[in-house]
Design a protein around this nucleic acid. Structure first.
Lengths: 350, 350
DNA sequence: ATTTGGTGTGTTAACGATAACTTTTGTAAC
DNA sequence: GTTACAAAAGTTATCGTTAACACACCAAAT
């Protein structure tokens, strides 16, 4: 046996030279295809083990023209929503023989682009995007799509003829949540966490507005709190803090709301803290509805009324749609799947 | 201009053929180095844009012999601990020009191996591992390390001369948490969430035992709940559920504990739910201490006394140590960094 | 004795990009 | 008019792997 190279990875040729065969023969041994005599196989195996051989995936994938890898770009991974999504996607892909690489982008265009770029640079076979929409990121994503990388988006705006779309019915969820409060007799209903981005929270706000309109309750702008900045500048955010601060503002109003719908459960939890700090009772003084039904919603006190969205199902569908795009020949039409969500009534409203 | 190819990615050669120059010239234009006339540059740029050219990262990285990408393998991403870690790592790497790919492995050897393999196959420049230790996974990890991939582990067992190690002082944290309860006069103190894996929770249990010993309090096995299965079979777990069920068991004891130390905050939150369900008061009937100081710890009712560990710092250090290994020539000794943690006293104990 | 066909192995060329080298062209200096 | 040298290209070889083909060799079948 020749000396083992000091630092570098051993290659097929290294082993071939060592054993005294052609690199192709080593390749055959490693991949277990083609004819190789038992004697040669053993010699090669031994040398490979000794030299700590490990196939170079870049070269392998370059030759194969595929990587069996999917990229997922997530925004806020602190949110159990993202977590469940990621797990469902991973499980679905894993069952079909694909790996999943996750990149985080805390909602800035720059980070979105960096994430897209690094995944595409590694030649992922497809991309699932679940960040909030923003101008720069979307432009870059469009380029990627048009250079023929299969893409599916989850719960965010992105109109493109060859990009599939999975989401929950945030509009109707927001509507149901608000209607629930109206049915309970509330007329001054606040909304916490409005943003201008074209994502799910906008839809939830629209559902809120729709419910008010349908029940002829005038909209009071002061009851709607949130962030008004331009989409592209939105930094990493803490929705819990947003809920806390939003609620503070609502509580300081001369005529404070008797009920509040928060854009998501974290926001609601922050709001609950503010309400308790003010010495008020939930739901007697202020009723509270969240969105998502994160695992902790049942543990807050009082347990949180919220809108449950099928997180796992969204991930699963997105993964399946992406694989279909990857594995099918025919270019398809854009597909949209908008899933129903469900109002879960707990003690924060009744 | 020639016709645009129907589905495939355009390559340098495609553009070269289209414009009527050599591939190398196109490469020069794309990378902005070497001499290219303004005229040619423009023609090439135009063609590239039209053909939606995108550099093949596999080929590029194969040639470069590096990817500027680091892989992170996480266990439970539902835990804010992992989240913070990931964010800190990403920020540190990003500042140094590296990308981060995250793989999830819900604590099974099979998934660990799959994650390691897919990252190494993509030739990441280094690997940060923050999963729980398990036999199969560790063996595979050893192979990877010995084939010269730089690796750093966080908060988990893995002894290897060329693998750096970052963790918090879980032993002392467990000790302090328990001592706090002892100082408050408690003598029957439960522990929820023991596991046999060589990770952080074992150390926390040891800290608990050490405190009992030091204060001459006899250990009552019945007060220690957890999972006894073999390490390699541990499935995806819900620590919250573990806390709930563990607490139920403790409550059913003839002589129930007056205080409980939970392996982490999620477990503590589950335990709190069980305590409340039993109609008992915290901390009057049962005092509760958690570990991690997740953002929600301050929002539980009562707010949770817990041991804060510097999550961001751990991530940052791990990333820096890894980059040093990658960028330095000299092979170094194994380095260990064990960070202090801090007891945060809130209302669940006093 | 020759065909057939499986077995074992080597050779070549590609995957896409690019470093290093070579060639050609233009043009300013002597 | 020749030299000199920068500018603008082209050519070759390589990163590590592998598909496709070529070529031995040997046993069984004709």
């Amino acid at each position: 046996m020749a000396k083992i190279k000091p630092k570098k990875q051993a290659t097929l040729s290294d082993i071939a030279a060592n054993v005294g065969v052609a690199p192709m023969t080593v390749s055959r041994v490693m991949n277990g295809n083609g004819y190789v005599s038992e004697e040669t196989r053993e010699k090669v195996m031994r040398a490979a083990k000794e030299m700590k051989y490990r196939r170079n995936g870049l070269a392998h994938n370059l030759k194969r023209q595929r990587t069996d890898t999917i990229g997922l770009v997530l925004g806020d991974i602190s949110n159990p929503y993202s977590t469940e999504l990621a797990n469902a996607i991973r499980e679905t892909l894993s069952a079909r023989g694909y790996n999943l690489f996750i990149c985080i982008s805390e909602h800035s265009a720059k980070e979105d682009i960096a994430a897209f770029e690094s995944l595409v640079n590694h030649s992922v076979d497809g991309l699932i995007v679940a960040t909030r929409s923003n101008k720069g990121g979307d432009e870059y994503l469009k380029e990627i799509v048009e250079s023929n990388v299969p893409v599916v988006v989850i719960g965010r705006d992105f109109q493109h003829k060859s990009v599939d779309f999975v989401s929950t019915d945030n509009l109707n969820g927001g509507f149901e949540a608000t209607r629930h409060l109206i049915d309970l007799g509330h007329r001054r209903i606040g909304f916490i966490g409005a943003t201008l981005s074209g994502g799910s929270s906008l839809k939830r706000l629209q559902g809120y507005l729709k419910a008010l309109e349908q029940y002829k309750i005038p909209v009071d702008e002061r009851l709607i709190t949130g962030r008004k900045e331009a989409i592209s500048e939105v930094p990493g955010y803490s929705t819990e803090k947003m809920g806390y601060e939003g609620m503070k503002r609502l509580l300081s109003l001369p005529n404070r709301p008797t009920a509040v719908f928060a854009r998501n459960d974290f926001t609601a939890i922050g709001a609950i803290t503010a309400i308790k700090e003010a010495g008020l009772k939930i739901p007697e003084d202020i009723a509270m509805v969240g969105f998502d039904d994160i695992p902790l919603a049942v543990h807050t006190s009082p347990a949180l009324t919220t809108v449950r969205q099928p997180m796992r199902l969204q991930g699963q569908l997105a993964a399946e749609m992406l694989l279909q795009r990857i594995e099918r020949e025919e270019p398809e039409q854009r597909r949209e799947r908008i899933l129903n969500c469900e109002l879960i009534i707990r003690n924060s409203t009744v």
